[in-house]
Design a binder for these strands. Structure first.
Lengths: 145, 145
DNA sequence: TAGCAATAATTATTATAGCAATTAATTGGG
DNA sequence: CCCAATTAATTGCTATAATAATTATTGCTA
């Protein structure tokens, strides 16, 4: 393997780890019978306890594209967890709100998700975290648009 | 934000970074007109210069599921870059080989991909890399099946 | 050796990622 | 005020991720 290819290896290891974290979380979500996917949860939790956020802003915050976000909101609405409300001041925009059922869902899931997320980071020190965060932010900046 | 939620934040930052790395690579792949996706490349490069690897093994190495791998190989074969050869000793298995065209494609891409991959890791030190690798491996182990 | 379990690959289905194009609504300049 | 450019959301399309089910083949064992 050429010396240059170590960067391909790092990229691959990073992707594998990220995917494993999501696989683990999704497995637990299924075991707990949450009835939503990890990605749907990422959107759902932004709306709690309430918010006047529209879909473009939601897409930005969750690092998703607007087409993907449209479809996730479709699914969340179909499950009765959210509803779309057209912005009175700009009828192009859709506010997304939690329903009462959606609010209960978030309250039920929140502490459990925190526990699930914790598992990945066992036996890592505060120093590890800081260093890790520094590297990720650096990469993120290096590739900034 | 509860203290527990820092782990959700780390997970999110990791996923965002991983996705940005792939977005950047795919953008460059398109600019260079490679004619394959980043994921197709991940499979293709395993076959160079030659190999007697079957699809299950390829899936394992590339951290993909066998259904995904089947479809990627379908696409690579449709592009004339690979071909399937049934294993004479076990007719359930498919060896995947590079065609002459596939071999040239890998040779053309390899150095350019190395350069592309390098961009993410600018201004990071050897110590950063080692520390980072340690954290990723620890997470990977923590979530081992 | 007949039959059953295990394995490799594929197919089907649902969800997400990303790009391009479309629709509807708004804004700004002449 | 009208039209062109912009913006928000949606739709269509292809590719990847993941699970479940199916098919074909092989291996094991009673």
């Amino acid at each position: 393997m050429s010396q240059e290819d170590i960067y391909s290896e790092y990229s691959f290891l990073l992707e594998k780890t990220s995917r494993r974290i999501k696989q683990y979380a999704q497995k637990k979500f299924t075991e707990f019978d949450f009835g939503v996917t990890v990605d749907q949860w990422m959107v759902l939790k932004q709306l709690y306890p309430s918010s006047n956020i529209n879909q473009s802003e939601l897409a930005e915050i969750t690092f998703k594209g607007t087409p993907t976000l449209t479809r996730i909101v479709d699914l969340l609405c179909a499950k009765g967890l959210t509803e779309r409300i057209v912005d009175c001041n700009d009828r192009r925009k859709c506010q997304v709100h939690l329903t009462a059922s959606g609010k209960r869902k978030v309250e039920e899931m929140k502490p459990k998700v925190s526990q699930i997320r914790k598992a990945a980071w066992n036996s890592l020190s505060r120093d590890d975290f800081e260093h890790f965060k520094h590297v990720l932010h650096t990469i993120y900046q290096n590739l900034a648009v």
